[in-house]
Design a protein around this nucleic acid. Sequence first.
DNA 1: TCTCATGATTGACT
DNA 2: AGTCAATCATGAGA
Length: 397
Amino acid sequence: MDAPQRPPRPAPPPPAPRRSPPGPPPGSNTGDVLQQIMAITDQSLDEAQARKHALNCHRMKPALFSVLCEIKEKTVSSIHGIQEVGPPDAQLLRLDNMLLAEGVSRPEKQGRGASAAANAAMPGGRPNDSGLEHSDYRAKLSQIRQMYHSELEKYEQACREFTMHVTNLLQEQSRIRPVSPAEIEHMVGVIHGKFQSIQMQLKQSTCEAVMALRARFLDARRKRQNFSKQATEVLNEYFYSHLSNPYPSEEAKEELARRGGITVSQVSNWFGNKRIRYKKNMRKFQEEATIYTAKTAVDATEVRGSGRQASPPSMSHSSSSGPFPLTGPGDTLIRLQTLACVQPSPRGGGLLAQVSLWHNPKACGVPDPVTSRPGAPVVAGPRDRLPQPHRGLRKLS
DNA sequence: TCTCATGATTGACT
DNA sequence: AGTCAATCATGAGA
C-alpha cells in the first residue's frame, strides 16, 4: 500500500471511506487534504461514531490492520533494536546463587544452607558452639529472609498487576490502532525487565545485608574481643581451683562455655594460653591465684554450710583434683604435693604425675613454684616435655 | 602513640 | 585430637 499523502495525524487512516465525504474528490494538493481533516474534526460525535463503525466493518480492515502492524513492527524494531533483549545477567545469577547459599532464597523454613552458614559463622565453626551467638545470627538472618520474601512478593504482585493493566490497555487500544500480539508480548517483556531490575536491586541489598551480618559474626572470630568479666571469672575460678591439673574435660569445657557465654573453642584457647602464661610468669598470676582460690574456698565453705552444691556437678567431677578443699594458692599445691607423695596412684601416673607434670617434673621435695620460686620458669623446654598424663586421665574420667 | 594484656592462629609434637 | 609454644593482632589504658 502506498503511503498516504496527507499528514498522518490526527485522523486515523481511513483509506476507503475517504471517498465518502461530500465535496471534491481526493485532492492532490495539500489544501484539499487539510480541508478534509478540518471536515472530520467538525463532525459531530454521532457522525464520528458512525464513521468509526463503518471503518471497523470495512472489508479491507483486517488486511489493512495487519499491514500496518507489520510496518509498525519493523519501524519499532529498527528504532529500539535489540536493546531490551540480553543474555541472562551474570550478576543476577551470582546474586541468586549467593542468596541460595545463604538460605535466604528458600522459603521461610530454614534450609540446610542457612544453618550451615550460621555454623560457619560461629567461632570455631562448631554446630553446638555458643548458642547465644548462633541464635543471634540465625534470628538476624531470618529477619533478612522475611523482609526479602515480603518485598519480593510485593514486587511480583505489582508486576502482575501492572502487566495485566498494560495488556488490557493494549488490547483495548488494538481496536482503534494497530497493536499486534507480538507487540503486547514485547511490552510485557519490557515490563518484566523493568521489574527484574528492581528485583535485582532488592537482591543486591539483601546480599549486602547478609554480607554485613556475616562480617559481624564471622570476622568476630578473627578479631580479638576481650571476654566478659563473667566469662573471665568462670574460667579463672576453674583454672585456679584445678591448678594441679588445669585440663578441663570436654564436658567441663562445655559447661564453662555455657556459663561464660563463649564457645568451647574459646575455652580451649583460653586454657591453652592460660597454662602457658601462668607457667611462664607465675609471679604475675600470684595475686590472681590468691583471689580466685580464696573465692573458691569461700564457696566451698558455703557449700559445706548449706549442704548444697554451688557449682554444677560436671565442673567438679571433670578433674580428679576438683574436690580438694582449697584455701590458698600455695596451700593448694602443698596439699596436693603432699597428698601425691603419700598416696601414689595405682594407675602409675596418678595425682603425683599430674602435680609434678604441671608444676614440677621432679615431683615431691621441690619448693612450690608459686610461693617459693616466683618468676622462675619451672617448665621444661618445648622439646624435653614429659608425657602428658592428663590425656589418659581425661579419657578415664 | 606506646605499651601491655589477651584472644586467636599456626606448626610441631605426642 | 589435644596440647604446647611462638607469634600475630587488637583492645585498652597510660
